[in-house]
């Protein structure tokens, strides 16, 4: 038991990790309650939890480049699309089974990340963001034009496979794996280097860090996991076309979720995704017509008034925009204006 306490202390396993662990153990046996004689969990709940786990994985992937390295990627969903199409083409056109097709999709996403990243990751700030947004939109058009391979605008139909519990387990394990990976990464030299690049790239370069190599490495790792999710999503959805896969707000919702949870924190994406997913469920069931409109408003509100996210609020409430507003309300006088979106990293 002594070693366990040591690990606890050494790695600062905060209560949040514990909560996540408990949540994981609770979620693990969920499908078994599905058995017809005990009507505890409905099939649709299992489906929406699967979607939730996929989003957690995607947001954590985005957080690797956007949160830790500080390169705000506005086109991360391009890797999702490549994963989906990589797997989809192999299954629908070449008749491969799912697992090798998934590997093809994920590897294709990683290779594309290395290629596009070695050009775009040299750009700074908004130039990188918009270049990636351009990549995303351009890839949609390329997929549409490559009709013989991708089926063009009419899309591809994959062999259906309706095993909800299996998708549930796979996505749950993938989400936990990726969150654990990010948590471990943050504690390695490599992770510290990424944060150094975010805080002061020129300084990091002067210390002899090959920043481009580090950025490309984390970029393809994130793209690889994103590609896996894309392939899983394609197989679960059994139909892919350019508009469904390369959906406009697919990336920005990841940014919004991660920001609500806390940029550059391990638990941030998990919390943010869960909150927004739950909110969106309410929106969809109440205002189907207006849900995108409301999401736009939500995005602006979160970004303007809550850029430090829930993790920022937990770490140091007085340093957040909301905290300052509250302080001013209590009459402590106006403090210094806005400083930085990046909060100190912790779990």
């Amino acid at each position: 038991m002594r070693t366990l306490t040591e690990i606890w202390k050494r790695y600062k396993l905060g209560p949040l990790v514990l909560i996540l662990l408990v949540l994981f153990l609770f979620l693990l046996p969920l499908p078994r309650w599905l058995a017809p004689e005990r009507k505890l969990v409905s099939n649709s709940l299992l489906f929406s939890l699967t979607q939730l786990f996929m989003l957690v994985t995607l947001a954590s992937d985005w957080n690797m480049t956007g949160g830790f390295t500080g390169y705000i990627d506005f086109g991360h969903a391009v890797f999702f699309g490549i994963g989906a199409y990589g797997a989809g083409v192999m299954m629908a056109k070449a008749g491969w089974p799912f697992v090798p097709a998934l590997i093809v999709g994920a590897v294709a996403a990683a290779i594309f990340a290395v290629l596009i990243g070695s050009a775009t990751l040299r750009l700074k700030g908004p130039y990188f963001s918009i270049a990636m947004l351009g990549t995303f939109v351009a890839m949609r058009e390329i997929v549409r034009v490559l009709r013989p391979i991708t089926g063009g605008g009419s899309g591809l139909t994959l062999p259906p496979y309706l095993n909800r519990p299996l998708f549930y387990y796979v996505t749950l394990i993938l989400a936990v794996l990726v969150v654990a990976f990010v948590w471990w990464l943050r504690r390695t030299q490599f992770g510290a280097t990424l944060v150094a690049i975010r805080e002061d790239e020129v300084g990091a370069e002067m210390r002899g860090i090959n920043t481009t190599l580090h950025k490309i490495t984390i970029f393809w790792i994130a793209a690889f996991f994103t590609g896996i999710v894309g392939a899983l999503w394609a197989y679960q959805n059994t139909f892919i076309d350019p508009d469904v896969v390369f959906f406009e707000s697919r990336t920005i919702e990841l940014v919004m979720m991660t920001m609500l949870g806390g940029l550059g924190t391990v638990a941030g994406p998990v919390i943010g995704v869960t909150v927004i997913y739950w909110l969106r469920d309410i929106l969809w069931s109440n205002f189907l017509q207006f849900h995108l409109l409301v999401e736009g408003v939500l995005l602006i509100v979160i970004v303007l008034f809550f850029p430090e996210g829930i993790m920022g609020l937990l770490n140091d409430p007085s340093a957040t925009s909301l905290g300052r507003l509250w302080g001013r309300y209590l009459g402590e006088g106006p403090k210094d204006a806005y400083q930085s979106t990046e909060t100190e990293t912790s779990v």
């Binding site: 705000i72 908004p126 963001s129 920005i252 920001m259 409109l293 736009g296 408003v297 995005l299 970004v303």
Partner: peptide
């Protein structure tokens, strides 16, 4: 810049 990008993106969605 992330803030202004996201706010104007939200505006475009709306």
């Amino acid at each position: 810049y992330l803030i202004s990008l996201l706010v104007t993106y939200g505006l475009s969605i709306i």
